[in-house]
Simulated scan of single mutants.
Amino acid sequence: MLSEVELIALIKAGDINAFDEFYKRNWRALYQTAYRSTGSSDDAKDLVQTVFINLWNCRYSLQPDRYNASYLFRSLKNSIINFHKKDSVRKKSMDNLLYVEYGDQYTHEDNLIAKELSVVIEGEIRELPKKMQEVFILSRQQNLSVNEISEALNIAPRTVKNQLSNALKILRTKLGIF
């Protein structure tokens, strides 16, 4: 059985079998770490896949004598951080699109426009396909997480994310005039 350093040297040389062996040795530990962070099997698999794709893509710059297992976990950690940043930004941008606060800083005309926009948004939400509408309402109006929605509707977390993403695209397109 080859050592990790020997596998890295073979991977650097482009040996796909060495890469496969390296993948098999390290996949489970990375997956478990990603799953604990995301709570989603699909997202964890995607993150681990990204780590290995990145490793393969930069194989020529690997230094076998300097390589250690913490490289993979650092790469995974960065992928997880980016994943959470993107998820947070997505949710914030939609919240900003859909929820308008009413306050003293707004004029009477601003409040009327906001109310009109709210009615239009609600109408567009009702126009979404039934399952997409249900997922969207659970996420944005009842503030449920992807995993909570997944469990409540008995669908995969990836399906929930896809439904939310598609709903946002549809709403942005239809609400572009505002």
Rank of each mutant, 00 (worst) to 15 (best):
R126A: 08
S93F: 10
I177P: 11
L62G: 05
A18H: 05
F19I: 04
I81D: 11
H108E: 10
F73R: 06
L144D: 12
N143F: 14
K85R: 04
I113P: 01
G176M: 05
V160L: 09
D46R: 07
K85I: 12
T173I: 14
I170S: 10
D43H: 04
A69Y: 10
S70Q: 02
W56L: 01
S41M: 07
D110L: 01
L138S: 06
L117E: 15
N154S: 12
M94K: 04
S139Q: 14
L164P: 04
N17V: 05
Q63Y: 08
Q32L: 10
N54R: 00
A156Q: 12
L55K: 01
Y102K: 07
A18D: 07
L117D: 09
V5Q: 15
S40W: 05
F19T: 02
I81Y: 02
E21N: 14
N147Q: 15
D110Y: 02
A114V: 02
K12G: 08
L97C: 03
M94E: 12
R126I: 03
L47N: 00
A44F: 04
D110S: 11
L175I: 14
F83M: 00
S165D: 09
A18P: 04
N143P: 06
P64N: 00
N111A: 01
I137V: 14
N26G: 11
D95N: 07
C58E: 14
I137Q: 04
E21Y: 13
K77F: 07
T159Q: 10
N17L: 14
N166G: 13
T159F: 11
Q105L: 10
E109T: 11
S88Q: 06
E151D: 12
T38E: 00
W27G: 02
M1N: 10
N147T: 14
R28C: 06
N166K: 09
S75R: 00
E101P: 07
E124H: 08
A114Q: 04
N162E: 11
Y23V: 08
L144A: 12
A29T: 00
V100P: 04
Y71C: 05
I53L: 08
L30F: 10
G39A: 00
K86L: 02
C58G: 10
R28Q: 07
D95G: 11
L98W: 00
A114Y: 03
A9D: 09
E151P: 05
E127N: 12
S88V: 06
E151A: 14
V51W: 01
F19G: 09
